[in-house]
Nucleic acid binder design. Sequence first.
DNA 1: GACGATACGGGACGCCCATCCCGCTTGTCG
DNA 2: CGACAAGCGGGATGGGCGTCCCGTATCGTC
Lengths: 173, 173
Amino acid sequence: MRADAERNRTKVIEAAMAAFAQDGLTVSVAEIGRRAGVGTGTVSRHFPTKDSLYAAIVLAKVEEIVSHARTLMAASPAGDAFYEFFAYMVEQATTNRGLAEALSGGGFDVESAATGTDQDLEQIEQSLLDRAQEAGAVRQDVTRADVKALLGACVAAPDRARMIEIVTAGLRR
Amino acid sequence: MRADAERNRTKVIEAAMAAFAQDGLTVSVAEIGRRAGVGTGTVSRHFPTKDSLYAAIVLAKVEEIVSHARTLMAASPAGDAFYEFFAYMVEQATTNRGLAEALSGGGFDVESAATGTDQDLEQIEQSLLDRAQEAGAVRQDVTRADVKALLGACVAAPDRARMIEIVTAGLRR
DNA sequence: GACGATACGGGACGCCCATCCCGCTTGTCG
DNA sequence: CGACAAGCGGGATGGGCGTCCCGTATCGTC
């Protein structure tokens, strides 16, 4: 691969990260190209489809999240790890609109694009939840989907810290 | 107004209600016309803009909600009225995708279109919340926006009854 | 029953977007 | 340094949408 191609690919990825984080997954390919300082053709060549750009960006973010989750799970007691991860996810989704949209299933299917990495995320979320429930820190009947829904509420709330308090109180036995 | 015009207007409104409830606010004007059995021109004439259709439909729904809220507030103790209204809203938003989108502020601004009725909704929500807080049934620091966010979580959850339980537990002092 | 006004259908228009393509530029290697 | 492959920019293309318009059909009245 030619050096300039490599450079442009990087520029596109970085611009797309920033654009998705700031404006969500609806930003146009042209806008991403503009931010990156390249033409739309260049974006299209590196990522033949807008979905392939989504995939590249979102999956990188998901890997980062999985990694952080592993750290938490190893370092903290079950209950703390769960609630710390929850707060971390709220933080991530708040500062990254594209990620929030991707996680809430809006318009783009992470699952289909990301057989491996996304399964990792689901598994580790499930593990964190299971352990917290075994430790009695979370109601027994709560599912991963419930947690996801509550995450959405925290992202939408004006005062996220207070909302996390409320949600946490509801989740404990 | 001519009789056929009146008929068609009604058909359009009913079709739009059904379409918005089922598919959300993204349904095309052509699709609404198709469902109503009229051309797109007829839809446009009665509602010159898609937003004016939104307004007509959503506002009718909001009036219905306000009316129900008044009934609840008169009939039940403060705490019960609040939590019953919350459950009622979850039910409404679940069975009406368009309403859910309108309330969550996605794409269409109820406020701007509905100076009167929408203010009524906000006021009565605020009253329900204030009274519930005075009665000690809801945490003092919760705001209307918080409640709205939690409503979103209940709509998104697979088991709404359980989620309402969780949220209720979190909202109580 | 006929005539004028009113409303209808659906095609035309303009806009936005993702994707594809092609003439030109730039990097790389002999 | 020169030539060719690789990459670039941005215009062209096709599809979807909301809105507008006009020839035609229908309604209500005289």
